[in-house]
Every structure is written in C-alpha cells, then in structure tokens.
Design a protein around this nucleic acid. Structure first.
Lengths: 396, 396
DNA sequence: CCAACTTTCTCCACTCACAGGACAAAGACA
DNA sequence: TGTCTTTGTCCTGTGAGTGGAGAAAGTTGG
C-alpha cells in the first residue's frame, strides 16, 4: 500500500491537521470556531485536504438543532510507529493519526549491544505489529534513545551509556529500513512530549519532566516547546553534584545525583543492605532472584521493609534537593516524575515534595504541583508518535 | 512636542523597524535583501512608514556603481528611556531609536525606601536628562527592578529585597508620569537582553547571564527569547543550596549561594577578616572608609592581598559549582558573568571556569565560552530600551 | 402537518496583498 | 557619448481571503 505522500500545503492546513489530531473528528463548523478563518476559506482548505486524502469525511453527526454536520477526521489508515529505546528494554507501539495506541510491545534488551543488534530487534517488533493487522505500513516513525541527540540530523552524540551509538545515523538508517520519515530525540524529551500531549501536562506551557530509570534525566518544556540545548544535552541532570565529595561516579566525578539515586544505584544499595544483614526482606528476595532490582525494593517497601523505605526516602531527598535548585532556576508550572522507578510511588514523591517545598522560594513553589506521570511506560512511545506527527503535519 | 503615536501596521513593518534599529540606516535595496519581499511590496511598506513618520529618508548614500540610494532611517527624534533599579543605585539613560546611549546618569539609592521615593528620584533624573537637551520627551520607557515581576502587567510580586514594592503598579504609574508606554522586567533579564542586543551574546540563541551584585540572579535566554517562568521568578538562583548546612540565609534556609557569595556576603566576609587581623590591607581600608564593600576587596586583591584573593576564589568556586549544575541542565551556548562584582575580574572568572569545566559533562562544556559581560553598567539600561522598543516595534 | 427558526454548508462577488516585469532615474566607466 | 549597473517606481495579473446571500437539512411549537 502506498503510504501518506501528501503534506499540508500551508499553515492553515497544518493547523487543521493538528486540531483533528488533538481533538478528534470535528465538523467544519467546529473547526471554524477554532481557527479564525472565514467559513468560505475554511471550506476551501478542508476540500483541499480531502483531495489529498489526508482527511476524510465520514458520516453525519447528530443534529444540534439544525442541519446535521459532516464529520471530518484524519485518514483512518494513517499509522505512526513510536519507538522508545531504554537502557535495558525497548518499547514499540503503533498509533493511529490521533496518536491513540493500537498495539504496544515491550521487550528486554541491552542498549550496549550497539545499534545494529538493537535495530534488528526494533524492526522485528515493528514487523510483528504490522503482521498482527494493525498496520499495513507506517507513515512516519519517532524514536527515542537514552542519550544526547543532534536533533536536526537525528544522530546520537557522545552518549555515555551507549558508546557504540556515537554518530550512528539513526534517523537515516531507520528511515531506509521502514521507508518512511523518521525523527529522533532523547527519550526523556519524548516522555515530556507524551505527558504534554495526553498526560498530566496537557495545557501547561512550562514544565519539567524528571525521568528516573537506570539513569536520571529531565525533559524541559518552555513555552510549549522542548528545550534541547546547544548540543542536545539539556536536561542531563544525572551528573549534577548532589553530595559534595560523595560517591565516585562512572563519569569520573564524585557525588553525582545518579551515583546516589537511580535504578542502578538503588539496586546496588539494596544488594549491599541485604549482604550486611540490614533487611531480612531484601535478603530473601536476593536469594530467590539471584539479584536485586528497583522493583524488589519497591515490593519490599510496600511490604513495610524499613530499610527499603529508608533507601527510597534517602534517594527522594537527594533528588528533591537537585530538583529544588532547578525549580528555583526555571520556575516551572508543573513537575512530573516518571520512569521505571515510579513504582516506588508515594514514598518517593513525598520525599521529593518535602525537599522542593522546603528549599525553593515560596513564589516558585506556591502553586507548584509535583506529580507522577499519568502515562507510565506509554509516555515515551506516545511522545515519539507526537514528534513525527508534528513534523509531518507541518508545511513541507 | 507630540511623541511617537504610530505603531507598525503589520508584521512587515515591524520587521523593517527592527532591522533599522539593529542595523542602522539602510537603503530600500539593502532592506530588500534582508526581508524576502518583492521590491514593489517593500516600497509600499516603506512609503507607509514614511507617512507615519516612524522612519525618514535623509540624503543619498554614495554610489556603488549605479544610481545612488536614499538612506532610510528611524525617526531621529525618537527617544527611549532606560531605567535600571538596583538594590543600592539607579541607572537612567536616554537612547535614540537605534538604542545608542545619548546620556546616562547613575545615582546611589536604597530600593527599600519604597516605590514612591525611588520614583521621585528616577523622574528627577529623567527630567535632568531631558533638560540637558537630549530629549524633548520620551516615546517609551523600559524599567528593570531587582525582583520577580508579573510581566504582562508590569507589577513586582513578592520581591524579597524590596518588600514595599509588592504589587505596586510600576508600569501604570510610570506610564502616567512619563506619558508614554512602559514595560517592566526583572533587572537580570534586562541585563541579558542588553548583552544580547549589543554585547557578547549577539547572535547566541541559548545562553545564561549571571549577575552578581548585592544579590545574585541569572537571566535565561532560550531560542532568543527571555524565559521568565510561570510566576516571573525564573533565574532566581541566589537561594539554591550551595553548601549543605551552610550559613543561615535571610530566606530562612541554610547554605544558599547568596549567603556565601554576593556583593553583600563578600563585604561581610572582608570586614570579618579585617577584624580578625587576617589582612592588613583590608584593615587599613576599613579604617579609612568606615566600612568595606566589594570594591575594596577588588582593590585589595589587585594589590596582591592574599586574603582578598582567597575570598574571591572561594566565592567563585561556590558560584561555579551552582553554575555547573545549571549548565548540565540547560546546556547553554554561552555563559555571561556580569553585575557589580565583575570588578573582581579574572580571579573570579578563573574560579568559576574551573568548577564548571570540571563538574559539567564534556558535551555541555566542550565549546562553552564563559566570559564577562561587555557592557558593564550600561547592559541594564540598554536592555530596558530594547524591551520597550521590541514592544513598540510590534504590530499594535 | 405546516410555519418559523437554527444550524451547516456552498456559492459568488469584491477587496487586498503580493509578485514580477517593464521602465525611468541616476550614476560609473570606457 | 554610449553602455552597463544599481536603484527606485509603476502597472498589471494572480491568488488569498472576507462577507453576504441563499440553499440544504434539521428542530420546535402551534
């Protein structure tokens, strides 16, 4: 099947496509209320979009006291692929043009195996989704990688946890394989975009999205736009000093936040505690599983294990201290906490909140919600689909 | 004299006015090279601007091998007032439409005396400038205050060091008194705008501008736009924790950056050192002047006083640590250091650089200049003039 | 069941923004 | 003096966009 070839011809059409993406099917009259165009001009642009096949008219809506309206919606065959590459697993999902997830796969993986191996896995997952009948092909794909990205080219640069990927032309390679346009971004930025599109950050202009997983990072949204920084490394808060002369970190410094709290650090601390006999709960889990992960700590804490609760609280305090500084600096309207460690839930959140509210200025924290992400593991793939749709729904 | 009443009627005219402001007089042909409009359309818009009096045609330029061109320039009678209110002094300046400073006054003042007293002083300074023949009146004024501002309304909110100003309608009051449009912003943001317009940050899209004066703050520019945050308190880095369990701060916390390094903290430290007999140099200065300020420390350091150099180095290290975190987070393309303490010069800069380059990730610091501001005390007033001109040179 | 009112959508005429070419003005240069 | 270059003006054609008239397709009340 031939995929989406057309692009909006002008800013009006782009605007209309995004309205239909974010608001679902609409009548011409409803669209007219949102775009500040005359009815006649609007009709012309809608007709042109209908001609290109980007949108379709299907059926009549119920009457609201007068002539019934035609439903205008984005082409129902449009499919986007969202890929979220983490340090230890991949998420791949198919969405329709409204960015609703039609199918979602998650598989363990080690990003250090390099781009070739990971690509193979991603492509086979995409093929599986396609084979299940959810898509005949993809009109575009977004992909997130756990490291800095030179955004315009879609190439990772000097990624600490995935050295083999440095300079690998992710965008071009994936575009070749899939035969559709591709956009690449940092995984944390995509999580922020996901929460902005369909999660807790809807209609918030300035917010921070802290993702605590194997590492720790922060998506920055200013004025509704993701801030990526000069070299694409904005939001890399894992190596901000949280503890003066603290633990040695892989980066060569001491006391980095990531060395004191992250999925990896938490697992290490829990293992140490188990070995030192500080927690019977953790010790039995260690014996059962052979190794401990953040999930074990979460479970132990839920079961009331004091040591685990302490570890979480301690980590939350460290993280909260760093976030407090960022809140003073950036003055966001919302802070979202997400990533694999959100299973730690309320204990973690409470610790972070305490530190932020205590250390930042009242004016900055006065009306500042600090909440868990709403989308969980789907935030990344939704953000990825959003990224490519933003691109495709802009004038060529 | 009647002042500027017209505003650009559309985006084209706004664009042209800003080109003339930033690039000085230009011929129609030169303007055409920069705006991507047909010659005919350009001529129409220029003619309309000439009719309104916003621009004038004065004289012919030298021939470049063909017919001589007419010089188009902004109305030479246009005058902007730039006001920069600090904690302990005020700067007031008059600029022409190209934002060149025609006259500049600086007077000591205490912002805690409240808005009424300060306004009186500002107005008398403005009157003095006007009386000297530099301006017959003002077409617009920008004003910076040392605290958070609700930007759209031009009202300070909960400013820590100027409590009497909370909620005072600065914009409206000044507009009434001067009889011209007024825009209000935080002083640090205006310094950043000044350095962006005419200083070291020309043509840099993302940068940080750290102002170290009585307090300490940071202007944030992302994508060429000042980021003010949700409540207007973005960049308030003085109360980020720099030293765990450090000195008590006026804000109620401990270890705030501002408590350990700022103009005020430095003066206090120097006085202590003098009393403890650690520095003969500082002791004599204390005896001579009755009190010590950052300027004394700078002079003593220049004279080779070891204690003063240590104080500066120590403060630079603290500041550098905080900036290192911000650099990791924001990934700017440039860091500008400015404010009253820049007299401390190279010693301070070296300490900051050391910390930032050591603690931030190589990708973020790889090509990151950290430099002193170029405009010194005029940055704020230039930024203020820029602020109001941006406003007036936008479609109404 | 019909008349009056609503809402949605289409059609048409008019205005204005803008491009691009022809051309005039003014100077440089050989 | 003639040719070439640069600058600026004029004019016409095209397409974007507005706003009103009216047709289409409903609901509601008497």
């Amino acid at each position: 099947m031939r995929r989406m070839t057309a692009r909006p011809a002008n800013a009006h059409q782009a605007r209309l496509l995004k309205l239909l993406r974010d608001g679902g099917p609409n009548s011409r009259a409803q669209l007219g209320d949102q775009v500040d165009l005359s009815r006649s001009k609007l009709a012309v642009e809608v007709d042109r979009l209908l001609e290109t096949g980007l949108v379709v008219a299907d059926g009549l809506a119920a009457s609201r006291g007068g002539r019934r309206s035609h439903n205008i919606r984005l082409a129902p065959a449009l499919r986007f692929l969202g890929v979220d590459i983490g340090a230890t697993s991949v998420d791949v999902a198919v969405t329709n043009a409204e960015l609703e997830i039609l199918g979602h796969l998650n598989q363990p993986m080690d990003v250090r195996e390099g781009p070739v191996a990971v690509f193979e896995q991603v492509l086979s997952m995409a093929a599986k989704l396609r084979a299940s009948g959810l898509a005949e092909g993809f009109d575009g794909a977004g992909i997130g990688v756990p490291g800095p990205v030179r955004f315009p080219e879609g190439v990772p640069v000097a990624p600490p946890i995935m050295p083999g990927w440095d300079g690998f032309p992710v965008r071009e390679a994936l575009s070749q394989e899939l035969g559709c346009p591709v956009m690449v971004d940092n995984d944390v930025n995509l999580m922020a975009m996901g929460e902005m599109h369909a999660g807790v950050a809807r209609s918030v202009g300035d917010f921070l999205c802290v993702k605590i997983g194997t590492g720790i990072g922060c998506g920055i949204v200013a004025g509704g736009e993701v801030h990526r920084g000069t070299t694409g490394s904005a939001g890399d808060i894992g190596h901000i000093q949280a503890v003066p002369d603290g633990r040695p970190c892989a980066c060569g410094n001491r006391g980095c936040l990531e060395a004191h709290f992250s999925g990896a650090a938490l697992a290490r601390d829990a293992t140490d505690a188990a070995h030192q006999g500080l927690s019977a709960e953790l010790a039995t889990r260690l014996e059962t599983n052979g190794a401990l992960s953040a999930v074990d700590v979460a479970a132990a804490a839920a079961a009331g294990d004091a040591t685990s609760l302490d570890l979480i609280r301690e980590g939350g305090n460290r993280t909260g201290q760093v976030i407090a500084g960022l809140v003073s600096f950036f003055n966001p309207g919302l802070v979202v906490i997400g990533g694999g460690v959100t299973g730690l839930g309320h204990t973690l959140l409470a610790a972070i909140r305490t530190q932020v509210y205590r250390q930042s200025l009242p004016l900055a924290t006065g009306n500042l919600p600090i909440v868990l992400g709403e989308l969980g593991p789907t935030a990344g793939v939704i953000g990825a689909a959003r990224l490519i749709s933003d691109h495709l729904f802009s004038p060529a």
